[in-house]
Nucleic acid binder design. Structure first.
Lengths: 217, 217
DNA sequence: AGACTGCCAACTGTCGACAGTTGACATGTT
DNA sequence: AACATGTCAACTGTCGACAGTTGGCAGTCT
């Protein structure tokens, strides 16, 4: 059924997926080094494709390259966290504004859906899975309909996930986040771009502060 | 004088610089393909480092990769230009806000310097070099002191330069841009973040509209 | 004439091997 | 003992060659 379609991704592409997963889940812990021959052998490929995969992940900020030394999983530096959240705030506030002026009905349905699932999860007493938080922000940038902003948001959120994996998971303040999310959906629903941006900024500033305190134990 | 320092960048790094230059200046025209063996031979290197260079430029948006076909210099699509400027606006408005609240005296000196040179150039009757426009925006993001935002702005501006190289250069509206720049400096000097953001948004919206008209001849 | 089929050259994807550099350990010196 | 120097294994940077895929062209059939 896929005769001409190269169903099999290139080896480099596959390696990117596998490595990204391992880095984001902390399977390859922060600070550790990626040995080319070792990993290539483990993946059953040669060093060429693996190198391309490593460079790709480095361009996404998931690895840091040191000439003649190799690739390392970056750790969490408080100063860098603040700078990263400045970028995230710039991107997601803009996304919130655009979403407020461009959202369709299906976007709103999706946003309400995610919020409802969060509430359900909260009442069940279970810990707040980051999955739901990501789903919310994902739904928002979808509503913004700005492909370049969406791509950058994806990259930044990925780096935030990496930072979180380096933290001993403090359960996120689900209640505060849920309230922020609800308020955001309301602003987007009303088409109030300015309010959406303001709420997003407050939300992210709260999340950032929380991560910084987690960093100092 | 640089005994341990690997003064010579890696071959891949050198190739990145050379290729970036050739792509941005239009020496490799939009739509054309980059033949690996041919270019590698021309640069006197092997295909390995060249491939890494190509992938790197692709991650910067300066090349588009097609599996089993190779790398192409992307052309200018009006819809994409709008989306790109949405990203640029998000980033540079945030930078303008931050600059207004963080700028030091040396930042202000630099900003005034660039504006003054623009006025001098204008009075001399010469065409407005994009160099001065880039210098202004560069000075602004320096004043913002947000490394991640700065990096992303650099990448976006690079793509704008690529778009411009694909256009038959219409001289930019220097007068309007100069006024915008002056107004921006004033807002930054006053520490008025909201105003800086507003002016930047208007400025970029103007520049974007101008590029779109240039696209339709 | 037009459409389909099978071949072919060109190019990308991948591999294994060689060369140069780095950090660490061992040895010698003050 | 602390420091400087020499040596070495491990790893990255680079290269040339092979295999698989793509798009185009010639030839054939309707």
């Amino acid at each position: 059924m896929t005769p001409p379609t190269p169903l099999h991704l290139s080896l480099a592409g596959q390696a990117v997926d596998v490595l990204r997963e391992q880095v984001l889940t902390g399977e390859i812990p922060a600070g550790s080094r990626v040995n080319e021959v070792e990993v290539a052998h483990k993946l059953g490929i040669s060093r060429g494709p693996l190198r391309e995969a490593i460079r790709h992940l480095a361009s996404e900020g998931l690895l840091t390259l040191v000439p003649h030394r190799g690739a390392f999983v970056p750790g969490a530096d408080p100063g860098d966290v603040k700078a990263l959240f400045e970028l995230r705030t710039a991107l997601e506030c803009a996304a919130a504004e655009l979403a407020a002026s461009r959202r369709t009905d299906v976007d709103l349905v999706r946003l309400h859906e995610v919020c409802a699932e969060s509430r359900r999860n909260y009442r069940s007493g279970q810990p707040f899975p980051y999955r739901l938080d990501l789903a919310f922000h994902q739904a928002l940038i979808t509503a913004a309909r700005s492909p370049h902003i969406a791509e950058q948001v994806r990259l930044v959120q990925q780096r935030v996930v990496l930072l979180r994996s380096a933290l001993e998971d403090d359960p996120p303040h689900q209640h505060a986040s849920m309230d922020d999310h609800d308020e955001l959906v309301k602003a987007v629903e009303d088409g109030d771009a300015a309010r959406a941006s303001t709420v997003m900024r407050r939300h992210l500033s709260r999340v950032c502060a929380q991560m910084l305190t987690s960093l100092n134990h």
